[in-house]
Simulated scan of single mutants.
Amino acid sequence: MAAEPVAPVEVDAWSDEVAEALARIRAACRDVDGQDPLDEAADLGLRHHGLAGARLWLAGSSGFALLRGDGVDLAVAPSARGTGVGAALAEAAADAGAREAWSHGDHPGAAVLAARHGFARARELWVMRRPVARALPEVQRRGGHDVREFRPGDEAELLRINAAAFADHPEQGAMDAANLAERMGEPWFSPAGLLVAVEPGPDGVMLGFHWTKVHSAGVGEVYVVGIDPTAQGRGLGKELTLAGLHHLASVLDDDGEVILYVEADNLPARAVYEGLGFTHADADTHVQYRR
């Protein structure tokens, strides 16, 4: 039975009760859709900073809209879909200046809401997957650089390369020291899973990095691969990707899988990943709408 529609109310302060309400809605969406309606950046922001720099509308346990900058994350609990809650949340966010919205999993209901409020499909992010048990090529070293795990003191160089490599990326390129510290404070972080390529010597300049992530014993992720633009053309991207995949294979169950996120229009990156055995299914598409 569908829940009675609840009018959205803007939340004026972050609290345990608000956090629990969002957690229940997110869990219900994950159970039915197989996707969390909040991405990692939104989740970290709420846990570390509450509603600082954000606005939140909550429709009881039926749904929420979280506005960060001009981007909105909107979720409706499956039991409340078709009751008008989503339309009311979308209207509140749009009236407050929302210009972008993600649909995690390319949900058809999101397409309807987007069209109703003048949002057009603008960007696709693919999730690609690879079985852990599939054999990997050996890592081929080209050049005199070293590959090692992250060490305390590498933070500034990692941030420098990340900023340069993702200068045009709307999410990853914004990572700063505080955000890096938050990510490294997560339970999944392991220095052994953050591989860096450096010039030889004790003070060798960093050339690139591959940050891997282990979600569980069965799922790992090619989290971020960043190469200094001045070091492009040396095969570092493929080398570091392979090195990270070998690391993940050593810590994941044999029946698990490795995932990664890639822009659908990034054909060179897709070609590299496909050559390493990654595949994409239509259900693994995230869509950003803009107006």
Rank of each mutant, 00 (worst) to 15 (best):
L22N: 04
L22I: 14
L22F: 11
L22E: 00
A23C: 00
R24N: 01
R24C: 03
R24T: 00
R24K: 09
R26I: 05
R26H: 04
A27Q: 13
A28P: 00
A28R: 12
A28Q: 07
A28F: 07
C29S: 14
C29P: 02
R30G: 00
R30D: 07
D31R: 15
D31I: 01
D31M: 10
D31E: 15
D31W: 10
V32S: 05
V32M: 05
G34W: 10
G34M: 08
G34L: 11
D36R: 00
D36Y: 00
P37I: 04
P37H: 08
L38E: 03
L38T: 09
L38A: 04
L38C: 04
D39F: 12
D39G: 15
D39S: 12
E40V: 13
E40Q: 14
A41K: 03
A41E: 14
A41Q: 12
A41M: 12
A42V: 05
A42P: 03
D43L: 06
D43W: 02
D43R: 13
L44N: 10
L46E: 09
R47H: 12
H48Q: 14
H49Q: 13
L51V: 10
A52W: 00
G53I: 09
G53P: 04
R55S: 15
R55G: 12
L56K: 06
L56N: 04
L56Q: 03
L56D: 03
W57E: 08
L58A: 09
L58R: 02
A59K: 07
A59D: 02
A59E: 07
G60V: 14
S61V: 06
S61I: 00
S61P: 12
S62G: 14
S62T: 10
G63D: 09
F64M: 08
A65I: 08
A65L: 09
L66I: 13
L66G: 04
L67I: 13
L67R: 07
L67M: 06
L67A: 06
R68H: 11
G69L: 09
G69H: 07
G69S: 09
D70C: 14
D70A: 15
D70H: 15
G71M: 11
G71T: 15
V72S: 07
V72A: 15
V72D: 03
V72C: 13
V72R: 02
D73L: 14
L74A: 01
L74W: 05
L74I: 15
V76F: 06
V76P: 01
P78T: 11
P78K: 09
P78Q: 06
P78E: 03
P78R: 05
S79Q: 15
S79E: 15
A80M: 07
A80T: 08
A80W: 04
A80P: 04
G82Y: 02
G82F: 09
T83D: 05
T83G: 03
G84E: 08
V85C: 06
V85Q: 07
V85P: 02
V85I: 10
G86W: 02
A88R: 15
A88M: 10
A88W: 05
A88N: 11
L89S: 01
L89M: 03
A90W: 15
A90V: 09
A90S: 13
A90H: 11
E91F: 00
A92N: 11
A92P: 08
A92M: 05
A93R: 10
A93Q: 11
A94C: 09
A94D: 12
A94L: 02
A94M: 01
